[in-house]
C-alpha cells in the first residue's frame, strides 16, 4: 500500500466513523462592506486604516498628480535608485529624478538588495483592514521579489481598486498567480506581544492614494 493510498484509506474510515454528512454552512456574514467600492468614503477609511498601521499615505486627486507625489516621497527618503515592474505606467514616475532600474531582464537578488526603493501599483485594497494586494501576474506590480528585497516600497493605489471588505477583495482576485496581502510595513509582535514595525520586509511603506478627497 502506498503512503497515499494508506492515508486516504485511514481518512475515509475515520470520516465514516465520525460522520460523513456535510453540514449546511451558514453564510450570514456580510459579503459587501459599509462603503461602495471606489467611493470617497471608502478611500477615506482606507487612508485611516493604512495610517493606523504605520503606512504613510499621500492623497492625490488625479492620476496626473501621482508622479509628483512619488518623486517627493523618494526624494524625502534619499532614494537615488528604484526598481520598476515591467508594466509600471510611465506617467506615475515621469517627474521622478531617482534612477529607474527596470526589472527586465529580471534583476538578481543581490542587485535588488542594492536598489533603494520599489514603485508598484496594486490589484485591490481593503479599507476595513488597511490592506493592499499585489498580484505577481499584473504588469504594474511585478514578481514578488521586487517588492520584498528593497527596503522602501511606494505603492500607488487607485480609488477604483478600493473596496470595503475582505470578501469583496477576494472576489476580485485571481489566485492563479502569487498574491501578497500587505497591511503596513513589516512588523513583529514577538517581543511581549507589542507591535514593532520594521523587520525583514520593507521597513518604509508609502501609499499614494489616488481618488476623491
Amino acid at each position: 500500500m502506498t503512503a497515499r493510498d494508506e492515508v486516504l484509506a485511514r481518512l475515509r474510515a475515520a470520516r465514516d466513523a465520525g460522520g460523513a454528512t456535510p453540514p449546511d454552512v451558514p453564510r450570514g456574514y456580510r459579503r459587501t462592506g459599509a462603503f461602495a467600492p471606489g467611493s470617497a468614503e471608502v478611500v477615506a477609511r482606507l487612508d485611516e486604516t493604512l495610517t493606523d498601521y504605520r503606512a504613510t499615505v499621500h492623497r492625490v486627486a488625479d492620476e496626473d498628480d501621482v508622479s509628483e507625489a512619488v518623486a517627493r516621497v523618494l526624494e524625502e527618503a534619499g532614494a537615488t535608485t528604484f526598481v520598476a515592474p515591467p508594466g509600471l505606467p510611465a506617467r506615475w514616475v515621469a517627474a521622478v529624478t531617482a534612477r529607474v532600474r527596470p526589472d527586465e531582464p529580471p534583476l538578481s537578488v543581490a542587485e535588488l538588495d542594492r536598489v533603494d526603493a520599489v514603485v508598484t501599483g496594486a490589484a485591490v485594497a481593503i479599507a476595513d483592514t488597511g490592506t493592499f494586494v499585489l498580484d505577481a501576474l499584473a504588469p504594474d506590480q511585478g514578481r514578488r521579489a521586487i517588492s520584498l528585497v528593497p527596503d522602501h516600497h511606494v505603492c500607488v493605489v487607485r480609488a477604483d481598486a478600493v473596496v470595503s471588505s475582505v470578501p469583496e477583495a477576494l472576489a476580485r482576485l485571481d489566485p492563479d498567480g502569487p498574491l501578497t496581502f500587505v497591511s503596513g510595513p513589516s512588523a513583529t509582535s514577538d517581543i511581549e506581544l507589542d507591535r514593532v514595525e520594521g523587520v525583514h520586509g520593507p521597513r518604509r511603506l508609502d501609499v499614494v492614494l489616488v481618488g476623491p478627497m
Binding site: 505577481a136 514578488r144 498567480g177 502569487p178 501578497t180 496581502f181 497591511s183 510595513p185 520586509g201
Partner: peptide, 27 residues
Amino acid sequence: QLLPRSSTGERMNPYTSTWSGVTPGDG
C-alpha cells in the same frame, strides 16, 4: 477575517502570501 483579529489582535497581519503551484519567472 477571523485569524488576524483573534491571533495578533490586528485588523490584518502585515503579510499574507498565497501561491498556486509554480509560477514561471516568479519564486
